[in-house]
């Protein structure tokens, strides 16, 4: 065994709790390919209810920029009339305690341009982005809606993963009440 023995490439995972809320970065998994990454993401991040969708993206496909770092020149992307563009997904961390949330898409000829465009067109002046991520849309592998039942359904039935399933608190209360009664009777 050597240090080089691979742990497989890293994929960032984005999860959508319900259909009416945006995807959010929840962490990462290691996998040899995108299909296994999607499955691993499901097993790691969907062990409890509330998941409507999962995306996985190779970590190396994401370009990151901190909001505190000024962008070079701060100019909007010119793009160029003949440069080909592609869709980039944009994620923003807006809250100190929050994580990267899906904001939208931009068309750009490169990740660097995509970042510039995202920050100029998708930012919220009242709550400026703290950290920005962009990745090519083609690098994203998504769970399909028709798989939702088998991907996300099983977590709903496993009530024993919730603390409320256990009777420890009520059992302790009953035992304490019994002890108090015994003490009261003993002192009579």
């Amino acid at each position: 065994m050597t240090v080089d023995d691979t742990q497989w490439p890293r994929f960032q995972v984005f999860k959508q709790d319900r259909l009416d809320v945006p995807f959010e970065n929840v962490g990462s998994v290691h996998a040899p390919d995108a299909e296994m990454a999607l499955q691993n993401a499901r097993d790691v991040f969907v062990r409890r209810p509330d998941c409507a969708g999962l995306w996985v993206v190779p970590a190396e496909a994401i370009l990151e920029e901190s909001g505190r770092v000024p962008t070079a020149g701060g100019e909007e992307s010119q793009g160029g009339g003949t440069a080909s563009t592609e869709a980039f997904l944009v994620f923003v961390k807006q809250d100190q305690s929050g994580t990267h949330i899906y904001r939208g898409q931009v068309e750009a000829p490169s990740p660097t341009h995509a970042l510039i465009l995202a920050r100029s067109s998708l930012d919220d002046p009242d709550r400026p982005g703290i950290v920005w991520w962009v990745c090519p849309a083609r690098a994203v592998v998504r769970s399909e809606p028709d798989e939702a039942e088998s991907m996300f359904g099983p977590a709903r039935g496993k009530l024993y993963r919730q603390p409320g399933y256990y009777r420890a608190d009520s059992m302790m209360r009953a035992i304490k009440a019994r002890r108090r009664r015994e003490q009261d009777e003993a002192s009579e």
Partner: peptide, 24 residues
Amino acid sequence: SRAMVRICAEESFHKKQGQEMVIL
């Protein structure tokens, strides 16, 4: 800190199930 928030939520049943077993 975000990892900890997630872990804390999941860990609560770990303690409860153990406590239930000890009580029994």
